[in-house]
């Protein structure tokens, strides 16, 4: 695989920011109650991470090491504020629902992580591709979670009714747990499990092994 292709495709399944690096979980919990909102969030994050990687990489040879984190954060924060402004101007309804979570992209570990780990060491084009790839990797997990949560929690897919709810005179009693952010933990967990069953090289070696029960061992020795 060429370097660019690798930078673009690797984060999607092989090195997924959420499923393997376990970054950016916070927003994966918070904004996945409904698919439309999730898509807006994915676009916002992908835009920010691509542009932040690009800009950090462009000035990487001039960033003094002792203030590099501050420089990265300033760039990211600026981009996030721009995205927030644009959202408020063009999609007011979603910006109301997303409220603080757009602003919280600043603290999303994926953006900062890619700027520090990749963009500081690679050229602008490759960095932008890497940012975009990571945005896609983030998006795909969020979209999976959102589809499951919206379907079980509200009986809809992208706002289209699939299972009519009892509250609207249908037969499906919505599982309210799936509307709460905590349900994402379980879905993320199962997603990671499924992914690692498929890509077995992602399974981590156990850090320690539980040793044999010492009493049992003693008994056997006697």
């Amino acid at each position: 695989m060429s370097k660019a292709k690798e930078a673009l495709l690797n984060p999607i399944f092989n090195d997924n920011p959420i499923a393997l690096q376990i970054l950016g979980i916070c927003s994966a919990l918070a904004v996945t109650g409904n698919l439309y909102i999730t898509l807006i969030m994915c676009v916002a994050l992908t835009t920010v991470v691509t542009l932040s990687n690009l800009s950090v990489s462009l000035i990487r040879n001039h960033i003094p090491t002792n203030i590099r984190i501050i420089v990265q954060i300033s760039i990211i924060a600026t981009l996030v504020m721009l995205v927030d402004e644009v959202l408020q101007a063009f999609d007011y309804e979603s910006s109301k629902t997303l409220s603080v979570f757009v602003g919280l992209i600043v603290t999303n570990c994926i953006v900062m992580g890619r700027a520090e780990a990749f963009a500081m060491k690679n050229g602008p084009l490759l960095s932008a591709i890497d940012g975009f790839g990571n945005g896609l990797g983030y998006s795909i997990i969020l979209i999976i979670i959102a589809i499951i949560r919206e379907f079980i929690g509200a009986g809809t897919f992208y706002g289209i009714e699939i299972m009519p709810l009892t509250t609207n005179g249908g037969w499906y009693l919505a599982n309210n747990f799936f509307l709460t952010p905590a349900s994402s933990f379980f879905i993320i967990g199962f997603t990671i499990w499924a992914l690692r069953e498929w890509k077995t090289d992602q399974i981590e070696k156990p850090e320690f092994k539980i040793s044999e029960n010492s009493l049992e061992a003693e008994k056997r020795a006697v």
């Binding site: 001039h62 003094p64 300033s74 760039i75 600026t78 721009l82 402004e85 101007a89």
Partner: peptide
């Protein structure tokens, strides 16, 4: 020589100026 005080200050100040200009512009425009 990136780590000299002079360079650090120049980078910090110019970054702030560029960022604030971008945000002010978008805030006013939108």
């Amino acid at each position: 020589n990136n780590d000299t005080i002079k360079k650090t200050l120049i980078v910090a100040i110019s970054l702030c100026l560029v960022c604030s200009a971008l945000i002010s512009f978008s805030a006013v425009e939108l």
